[in-house]
Amino acid sequence: MKKSITLRDIAESLNLSASTVSKALNNSPEISQNTKKRVHEAAALKHYIPNVSAQILKGYKTKSIGVVMPTLDSKFYTDALNAIEQQTDDRNYRLILCISNESYHKEVSCVNKLVQSQVDGIIISPAVETYQKKKFSHLTSVQDFKKALVLFDRISNNIDCDKISINLDLMVEQQVLKLQKDGYKRVGFIASCMDEDAFNKCKTGYYNAIQNTGQPDLFFNAEATTGSKSYKHFIQEELPDALIVCDALLALKIEELSSIRSKRNKEVEVVCLNQGNTLQMSSSKIRFLSQNGSEQGKISADLMMDRVEGLLFPEPMQFVLESAV
């Protein structure tokens, strides 16, 4: 078996102390740039792999970040993940990915495993079920373990941490106004598969747009309906000429209802706030909007690494981005 290269081996080859080599590999400001360069080149040449367990025992950062995604079926989340991976790779951080599949229990398991794996912090977009259950103790406990926590896309006022999100209420308001400007007089909104915070923001944006316009109130909460009052009945009864929908799968189902027409006897215009997967986006007439997945991912990763490296003030930071419509 090939012998593993140690810090001492690198130190002896460069006639340096093991302490100097360790500091150089961790980019300590105590070490000159020339020495850092020599050490990094020697480590790469000898294929040196840091002993993470030993670093943990010594109280060092592991330079590993956990990421919990609710799904990878949406282009938004794949864009965010690609951006996170790019940023962490550029700064030599390891990435450990978990998928919650929108399940609260799976999310709790993912977070616990990441904490046990001694990651320096966790970037997460919580599952819809987590918000439905209103249970966040597994997330607040991350900080109890002295781990950094960054929420993106889906954020909660119940958790005091760094957050990145889209200006959802403004995004909805702008879309309603755009549809009205394009001649649509009955713009509806169907809310489904949303956490409470996102629901309230969408509702605020919608009513901000329709006030004083004379347009009827066509805001429909699909999650709160029972019996025969489904989104299909809502569309057939109210006959909107345009619809804004939150969920890509629901948007596709609505598009498939070819019998549905507006009062103008035209197909209903469907706009989806969330990006579907690439196949969905290319094979339908739905207008999918971007919530800046790449930008949210980039900021999340940079914010996490800066937090881990102690480059930020202790107070949590929050970024609210404009939609890329």
Rank of each mutant, 00 (worst) to 15 (best):
N112A: 13
E30P: 08
S109N: 15
I123V: 08
A83H: 08
V119R: 08
A11Q: 10
V67F: 02
K185N: 08
Q180F: 07
K61H: 10
K147R: 14
A18M: 03
L95K: 02
L312M: 08
I99K: 15
L97K: 02
N167I: 07
L7P: 10
E322Q: 13
R94H: 10
L149R: 12
N167S: 12
E269M: 15
S53D: 07
K113Y: 09
N212C: 02
V187T: 05
M317D: 11
D306G: 03
F145Q: 09
G276R: 12
T204L: 12
L218E: 09
F319L: 04
D241S: 11
L97H: 02
N15S: 13
I254P: 01
E107W: 03
H47E: 11
D90T: 12
T6H: 10
V52G: 04
G227R: 00
L279I: 05
F234V: 11
K266F: 00
F189S: 03
S262F: 06
A242Q: 08
M1Y: 09
T204F: 01
I299W: 06
V187Y: 07
S64R: 11
E85R: 15
P240C: 07
L149M: 06
D73R: 12
A127L: 07
I166K: 06
V325F: 15
S230G: 02
Y93I: 01
S137P: 02
S284Q: 04
R91F: 00
E41C: 12
F313G: 00
V172G: 14
D169Y: 00
S259T: 11
D73V: 01
E295W: 07
D197T: 14
Q291K: 13
C98W: 00
D169C: 06
S284N: 05
I31R: 07
Y184C: 03
N101E: 03
L114W: 06
D120A: 03
S284T: 05
V111L: 05
E309L: 14
K3P: 00
Y93V: 00
E295M: 13
N265D: 15
V270T: 11
R287Q: 11
K203I: 01
S141N: 13
C202N: 11
S32I: 06
P314W: 11
M304T: 03
Q87F: 01
S4E: 14
K63D: 00
Q215L: 03
R307I: 01
S125E: 00
K178P: 11
Q55W: 02
K58V: 02
L16A: 07
L95E: 03
H233K: 06
N212K: 02
L312W: 00
S13M: 10
Y48W: 05
V52Y: 10
K36V: 09
F319R: 12
L95H: 06
K201Y: 00
